[in-house]
Design a protein around this nucleic acid. Sequence first.
DNA 1: CGTGTTATTGACCAACATCAAACTTAGTGG
DNA 2: CCACTAAGTTTGATGTTGGTCAATAACACG
Lengths: 248, 248
Amino acid sequence: MTETRRLAHERLIQGLFAKADASITELVQGLPVRILRLEPHQEIVTEGQRMREACLVLEGFVCRHKHVWKDQRQILSFHIPGDLPDIQSLHLPTVDYSLSALPASTVALFPHAAVRMAVEASADFREAVWRHALIDAAITRAWLASVGRRTAYQRLAHLFCEVFARMLDRKLAEAQGFVLPVTQSDLADALGLSTVHVNRTMQDLRRSGVIETRGRFHGFTDWVALREAADFDPGYLHLPEETLALLT
Amino acid sequence: MTETRRLAHERLIQGLFAKADASITELVQGLPVRILRLEPHQEIVTEGQRMREACLVLEGFVCRHKHVWKDQRQILSFHIPGDLPDIQSLHLPTVDYSLSALPASTVALFPHAAVRMAVEASADFREAVWRHALIDAAITRAWLASVGRRTAYQRLAHLFCEVFARMLDRKLAEAQGFVLPVTQSDLADALGLSTVHVNRTMQDLRRSGVIETRGRFHGFTDWVALREAADFDPGYLHLPEETLALLT
DNA sequence: CGTGTTATTGACCAACATCAAACTTAGTGG
DNA sequence: CCACTAAGTTTGATGTTGGTCAATAACACG
């Protein structure tokens, strides 16, 4: 467990900073942290809840979602290790969404009070938290544009590009492809489609020869074509040059 | 023009704080500001642009939008007087969306440098800016849920409820209804629908007896029914109690 | 093996898009 | 005050994307 705590501090740094300087490392390692292991589909946070801790994804895959009308749900975002899906609860403690693990996952919980102290102590830390929250908002806007104005084919392609790019940046993906540990029904809820249609659209993607699926690993057989079909421009992710270079 | 500058400071306070204390008022009134008058449809900010000022809506109605694929656009948010649609450019200067006036509008521009100083000088101001940016993100999430999982009828109803609630809070609407100064084609781009379908759906709303339109004024003839059709819960707007009371 | 979850298929249907035209309104200049 | 124009709204006819329902097939795991 001490091992996992170390991982939590490491991942926090990885998620917030391109490169950590010594003072930041020290600051982060001083943060108290609680580890939570989650079953598949387990809910961590519920819409309307008042938070006292902020969550960091350590392993697995987490999503934000909202329940809409009769048992329909919309997934609002996917979160990979290193993400802080509810960091904004620091300033707006009542959350407007639920948070759930998709496959079995593990998350770290940092008390708001401690994070607030770190934020006040270090301008770099403060800046990094802002950046993280704002990129998150930019991603939500990209999703809104996708769901509002793209076809199912384009939406799915765009989602693949985005999640791949983000995972690549955190060294969670190979250049040739990546593991997306979610079901087709999760994808449907993320893209505003039905499960059946996601299934058919996936088949279209495979038939077009841009993606090859083996289980939950998705290999890119024609990255340029995928990127173009999706009309994907990674600008909104504000990735470092090194990562962007890998997405050419 | 000096008159308009005063208005700018006043609206900034109104947009950021429920009630202003004296020190905040002083701080805000010290901010340098530039006024811009906009023609209908005039673009203020363009996707990818690097900002050095932050925009505050003074009069009219402004929207954020993204261009998607062949001349399609998705409106990401509407902004009413008192809103800071691109305050996040303070920390992420390259914006991922465009900003346009819908009807003729006027906006104030505050230099980033000055705002940054105010943010550093006052914890209350800093907190208020965070709050503003985070509520904005919550609104985007609500839109995503709407576009992803609601029918045209529900989406339109939800949008009416939301914008009305926000305008009410800023004293920009009467209890019986409000002026929404946008075209049906703007609504279509906001809701991910076609203009024709928005038109037909508006007629449905009128036929159901929940809304009555005279020009761009929309009167609520059955608020409770509208609210229920939209499945509208204003929690995500984080409005003060007084305003919530008016939405019962 | 059996049991539960996920993926895939087929038949049919509904919501919403597209296209093209007519109508309304508000603004403009003579 | 009236034509003239441009923008926005409304209508009808028709097409398509994606939804629903229901069944079957493929896995994954104890």
